[in-house]
């Protein structure tokens, strides 16, 4: 391919892309989202933050839309700190988001477990604590492909964010105190497993170049949400074979038995059609049905993307009564509406 040719995107100047996206998001959902602070990177719920309620701040790099600002709204996150494409937001972005949602009883910060996010949220927490705001954080680490279970704390956060954010958001909305919201977010994180597969690369708006190369007939099992290499590259297989591999890895750890309940998320990475996602979900359900495991709730669609990467991930959370009630708690955000 001509070195000069960039991958095609409908954008303006790449350096303005985040500001323009936020302008568009807030403009499209003015009943749910607003921007607060100086940096323009703190997207805050119109309804949600209130005195006496634990504030929920989520965040991470851009390019994963609807994560993270799409989860801001009543019953879910109170604010999102929005980083550059594939780059954690800076402490100043995070501090602005946290200050906007502080209701006097502390803030829980949730993000995917990546070095950049851990470092920036940690620096932000240091600053907030100096200002007298109590902060807890939970780094979502659901990607079974990214490290063995003995090193679970090193695992990446991928689409499992969805369940952890939802459950923490519900707990905060219900008025749970800071330590309990943190514990429930951690419980959700402990009960959640994901694994993905990628078929094609994505390209950063600034470089306009595919961020990895992959053969015309290959897939990468365990690919990360930024195109970080996974555990194996192999010839493309059928949807059922691929789904079985993901489900096997997840169930191997989750240990769900007949009569137990899970919630399932089949997530598209950006360029994968809903037909494919539903074909994958069908196989996940066949597998769970065969085990007698009940699917309490399920979502199929784009919930944590990698720009226009082709591929998908499967996420399951093992539910007890507490987690289930929190998952069912109503919320209203651009990316997710639950309840009536």
């Amino acid at each position: 391919m001509n070195q000069e040719v960039k991958t095609k995107k409908l954008i303006n100047a790449p350096e303005n892309i985040i500001a323009e996206m936020i302008e568009g998001m807030v403009g499209a959902h003015p009943d749910m989202l607003r921007v607060e602070g100086e940096t323009g990177r703190a997207v805050v719920a119109v309804e949600g933050p209130r005195d006496g309620k634990v504030g929920i701040v989520v965040g991470g790099g851009s390019g994963h839309e609807p994560a993270f600002a799409g989860y801001v709204g009543r019953g879910l996150a109170d604010a999102a700190a929005v980083g550059n494409v594939f780059a954690s937001p800076s402490p100043s972005h995070i501090v602005e988001a946290a200050r906007a949602v502080d209701g006097g009883v502390g803030v829980v910060m949730l993000y995917g477990n990546y070095t950049g996010d851990v470092l920036n949220f940690t620096m932000a927490a240091e600053e907030l604590e100096q200002a007298g705001i109590a902060v807890r954080h939970v780094a979502v680490a659901d990607d079974v492909a990214s490290a063995p279970i003995e090193r679970k704390s090193e695992r990446r956060g991928i689409a499992g964010d969805f369940f952890v954010f939802k459950i923490a958001g519900a707990a905060a909305d219900l008025g749970e105190p800071l330590a309990r919201v943190e514990a429930l977010a951690q419980a959700a994180n402990d009960a959640t497993r994901s694994m993905g597969v990628a078929l094609s690369p994505c390209s950063l708006p600034q470089t306009g170049k595919p961020n990895f190369t992959i053969g015309d007939d290959e897939m990468e099992i365990g690919m990360g949400l930024h195109g970080e290499p996974g555990i194996r590259r192999q010839k493309l297989a059928t949807a059922d074979e691929v789904t079985d591999e993901l489900v096997d890895a997840i169930l191997g750890e989750l240990q769900v038995e007949a009569g137990q309940r899970v919630a399932v998320l089949v997530n598209g990475l950006g360029a994968t059609s809903q037909i494919e996602l539903y074909v994958i979900f069908r196989r996940v359900k066949q597998r769970l049905d065969a085990l007698g495991v009940e699917i309490h709730a399920s979502w199929v669609g784009e919930y944590a993307t990698s720009l226009e990467m082709a591929g998908a991930s499967v996420t399951m959370i093992k539910l007890d009564d507490t987690l289930q009630a929190l998952l069912d708690h109503p919320c209203r955000t651009p990316a997710l509406v639950v309840g009536t």
Binding site: N84, G116, M123
Partner: peptide, 14 residues
């Protein structure tokens, strides 16, 4: 550096 970057390098270099 820190305010503009975030990412891993922001906190490290800052």
């Amino acid at each position: 550096f820190l305010d503009a970057v975030g990412a891993s390098t922001g906190p490290l270099y800052a």
